[in-house]
Design a protein around this nucleic acid. Structure first.
Lengths: 192, 192
DNA sequence: ACCTGAACACCGTTCAAGT
DNA sequence: ACCTGAACACCGTTCAAGT
């Protein structure tokens, strides 16, 4: 028996799958409804518009991003609590090279597309990035000086790389070492 | 009498205006055609699909960006041919704080919004950023060492700032001086 | 070469109606 | 509260036909 929670979860998963398989241009309410075995109008009952559906996806996106970085920190600091260098290297690699997988990369672009026209979503995005910046600053602050400056350099850079990184003359992998040297003042000799 | 050049220019301007006024969601071929006083199918004659129209729009966008920076360089180097510092300061201010005026800032977001739904346009964007990066590198190369690295840092950062700059702990104005010191190795004492 | 209107398959949204 | 089908206005694309 499908209650409200099950149904919304089912819709969320169908939306995610559809985005992965057909890209953002292939995401239509009719297809989502069809995958859930419900009518188009019933989908509209749970999410009263396409924007509402994508807003829910946005919340999911932010949650995953946060968990991803937190997991990285815990993993490294568990291995060697004193190894600030390794954590930095991993953090830079995560932010610049790995970014997120394709699915979340598509979602990231789609969210900015929506935010350009949806003031509420745009404000939500800003709040998320403020929180993200504060958190990153506190993480860096324990290990390196000028944490606020580093954050203000690194977050915009990493988001920009997600857009234009593959068109730059220096590879993203090489840029990790550039950033490492920029922050520590020493050449990158960390192997991960 | 409208020849081909006039017609395409007219279409281009109508597209830009429409994007500005109604955003990427409001941009439809019918509206563009209507604004130009031509039929939908005639618009399709000049631009055989929506993607083709958007590609032309992107080309226009990048041309303006390039001209903007070139004008800035000429203005400064005319005043004092030796003043690489002033040019750098102006370039950084242009890229980080001013970016472009509102119109092109909106256009920038809308283009990425559209590129998320249009693979061909996304590839076109990549090509333009490659050219932009090569050009910026050549500009910097005459004045400062490690031009490719600077380009690979600065372009993604400036695009990222356009998205999340207002959520960072350090203001964009202050970040100009940070970048100045990063590139020159000296404190920013340039007044503009 | 330039331009038109009609038709096609699809989209998001709305709504009266059922359980 | 949950779900449906039909209808609406709109979209990009195609195409036979005009000048």
């Amino acid at each position: 028996m499908a209650n409200r929670v099950d149904r919304t979860k089912e819709i969320m998963e169908a939306t995610a799958k559809l985005l992965m398989e057909e890209g953002s241009e292939g995401l239509t309410l009719r297809k989502v409804a069809s995958r859930c075995g419900i009518s188009l109008s019933n989908l509209q009952y749970y999410y009263p518009g396409k924007t509402a559906l994508l807003q829910a996806m946005a919340a999911h996106f932010f949650r995953v991003c946060e968990e991803r970085v937190l997991a990285e920190r815990d993993k490294v600091l568990h291995d060697d609590p004193a190894s600030a260098q390794v954590f930095l290297k991993r953090l830079l690699t995560l932010m610049i090279v790995c970014e997120l997988d394709d699915f979340y990369h598509v979602l990231f672009r789609e969210l900015w597309a929506l935010a350009a026209r949806d003031a509420t979503l745009a404000e939500g995005m800003r709040t998320y990035y403020c929180r993200y910046a504060a958190w990153l600053t506190s993480q860096i602050n324990e290990l390196f000086p000028r944490a606020e400056t580093i954050t203000s350099l690194l977050i915009p850079y990493s988001e920009g790389v997600a857009l234009v990184g593959d068109a730059m003359p220096v590879s993203n992998e090489a840029m990790v070492s550039v950033w490492y040297q920029l922050i520590t003042g020493q050449p990158d000799t960390v192997k991960i």
